Computed example of a mutant assay.
Amino acid sequence: MAKNWWKAVAVILVLFALIGGLLIDVPRLPILNETIRNLFYHVTMWFAMMILMTASVVYSIKYLRSGKELDDAKAKIAAEIGLFLGVLGIATGSIWAKFTWGAYWINDPKLNGAAVTILAYFAYMILRNSFDDEEKRAKISAVYNIFAYVLLIVFLMILPRMTDSLHPGNGGNPAFSQYDLDNTMRIIFYPAIIGWTLIGVWLGELKLRLHKLRIKKLEDEL
């Protein structure tokens, strides 16, 4: 039980973000107004996604060096959960865009880059199901995962900063940290990132247990 304290922390932090994010006073900025509360959900989910995708590519690199099936499984699981959070991030971002920009989606470099990134990781999942040979699947998937992560960095971190963009923090548009924000927002924002990340790790742990049980069952049947 003592080893699972972080799971309780994860639940508390996410509940704190979900509830506190709706109740605290927020700055009344032009256009954003009350929609700025989505900062606690949309942005924090994407931070957690990027952390998990980083973990995924690290395990893919480890697999290419070690050849251990468990490293490949961890890479896959981290990518799956990261993709789930990424889809949630796009959904909450689209709702935010509707209320601030007037449309669920606009032709914006950051938004288009996010879509390309999500599609790249969907392709990773499809690729994994395209091979019957486990070793071949693991090796090719690991190499592709590195490629997908490079796309993530390029389309989310680099290209949007090199052109005009409505998205905060890109194309000359100031990020939220540069606005005169109430410091109480940071009290919700940073714990939310930690909370979503820990929830992702927790889900990954559960999926890894199921994976190990399936492997053990197959071994027992042989």
Rank of each mutant, 00 (worst) to 15 (best):
D164A: 07
M185N: 02
L18Q: 08
P27F: 02
E135A: 05
D108G: 12
A97V: 07
S94V: 06
I31H: 14
E135H: 06
R65L: 10
M162Y: 04
A79T: 05
I146T: 12
Y179F: 14
D164K: 11
R37Q: 12
I126M: 10
V154Q: 02
G89L: 00
K139Q: 12
L70M: 08
W96V: 07
N170A: 15
V143K: 12
W196K: 03
S141H: 13
P109T: 13
G113W: 12
N4Q: 14
D180W: 00
F176L: 15
F155W: 07
G204K: 01
L85Y: 12
I106D: 07
K3E: 01
D164G: 00
I81N: 01
S56V: 06
K76A: 03
N129P: 01
P191C: 11
G171K: 13
T92S: 14
A175D: 15
G82C: 08
Y59C: 12
Y41H: 15
G82Y: 06
V201L: 10
W101N: 10
K68D: 08
S94N: 09
A148Q: 06
L22V: 11
L29T: 11
F84S: 10
N107E: 04
F40N: 10
T44V: 08
F147L: 10
E34P: 08
T100E: 15
S177Y: 11
V11W: 00
K110R: 15
F99L: 13
G20D: 04
G113H: 14
V14F: 01
M125G: 14
Q178D: 13
M125F: 14
G67C: 10
R28C: 00
E205G: 10
N183W: 04
L181Y: 10
R37I: 09
T35Y: 13
A2V: 12
I36F: 03
A2Y: 11
P174C: 03
G195T: 08
W46C: 00
G82Q: 07
V58K: 05
G93F: 08
Y59I: 05
Y149W: 15
